[in-house]
Design a protein around this nucleic acid. Structure first.
Length: 318
DNA sequence: CGCATTTGACCAGC
DNA sequence: GCTGGTCAAATGCG
């Protein structure tokens, strides 16, 4: 389940990445120390003054971590230019000429009727994807809209297809499909394709936001130097979780009581700069893997949001 | 009424 | 030709 460096990475660049990883880890340790000392100061009362004291330092550490992470991401992006370019092209094609805008779709010179355009799309065969396997259905923090369901050959359960809710209003091309792969114990595999470019993910670290669709590369690659056993050790997950928490309200069915609770806590997070707190209030990722064009790539392990309900996104595949 | 989901049809890749 | 991925009309729901 560990990732290996792509063979194409030159050794000097590889070393630079390793240095960055080391720096990031050290910053992580520093943050842990800060958290610890802040916790010591805070025990027995909820005095906010202590929090305010630790907050600037914590904030700085988080920024340092983000810098490391972003640098790693940029370096990794440079190694994935080919894929990135493909994705960039896909972005333009799908968004500018998307079937939804019927006028522009005429430029495709299709001599078929409006109805016949169903299924007319560019398959993103080479789009970056990564998979996550969880014992329960978990929310990943984004607003997904289901657009299809398909029975897969040799699969016990149908596959559910989701796209970003903001596909049409912001051109976000992120999609995912979720498939139940085990019944007892339940196990779900979510395959994510492409990164979110919608502005609805403002809380996602710059890692996602600052990178244009053209720089889509394995954001998870930056953590492949080790198996992640401690969420504290991973700034990416820390930041990522923060965004996830904020975004829950987007995906949560309104009639779900458990989720309603999370919703309220997410708004709490919005006024809190402490990403660690938000992160630790969540569960964990069970399996997360990253690959450039299929879902059988290297895997990063963690544990994310395992506590969410099975029928959170999709129920028992009726 | 607006938005999300369902579902059959269509298309690309193998 | 088969299969997986996507579209969009129909339907459901708040």
């Amino acid at each position: 389940m560990e990732c290996t460096w792509p063979e194409s990475i030159p050794s000097n660049k590889k070393k630079a990445i390793e240095e960055l990883v080391q720096g990031r880890d050290i910053a992580n340790k520093l943050r842990s120390l800060l958290n610890k000392s802040a916790g010591d100061n805070n025990n027995n009362n909820n005095n906010n003054n202590n929090n305010n004291k630790a907050a600037p330092a914590e904030d700085l550490v988080v920024k340092i971590l983000n810098s490391f992470t972003n640098s790693l991401y940029i370096l990794n992006s440079a190694e994935s230019d080919e894929v990135s370019q493909i994705q960039a092209n896909t972005h333009v094609t799908n968004w500018n000429g998307g079937p939804k805008s019927s006028e522009s779709s005429e430029e495709t010179s299709r001599n078929t009727t409006h109805k016949d355009r169903r299924g007319c799309y560019k398959r993103r065969k080479t789009a970056q994807s990564w998979t996550k396997e969880t014992p329960s259905l978990t929310d990943d923090g984004y607003a997904w809209r289901k657009y299809g369901q398909k029975v897969i050959l040799n699969a016990k359960f149908p596959r559910h297809y989701y796209r970003c809710t903001h596909k049409h209003d912001q051109g976000c091309l992120a999609t995912k499909h979720v498939q139940r792969i085990h019944d007892d114990p339940p196990k779900y595999r979510s395959t994510y394709i492409g990164h979110h470019t919608c502005r609805n993910i403002l809380k996602v670290p710059e890692l996602f936001l600052d990178s244009s669709p053209a720089s889509d590369s394995s954001v998870l690659l930056s953590f492949d130097n080790s198996t992640i056993t401690n969420k504290e050790d991973n700034p990416f997950f820390t930041s990522f979780q923060s965004s996830i928490k904020q975004e829950y309200k987007e995906e949560i069915p309104s009639d779900h009581n458990d989720i309603a609770h999370i919703q309220s806590s997410s708004s709490d997070y919005l006024v809190s700069p402490d990403r660690t707190v938000a992160f630790e209030s969540l569960g964990h990722v069970s399996v997360l893997s990253s690959t450039l064009d299929s879902d059988n790539g290297d895997v990063i392990s963690g544990d994310m949001m395992g506590s969410f309900n099975d029928d959170f996104l999709i129920d028992d595949f009726p």
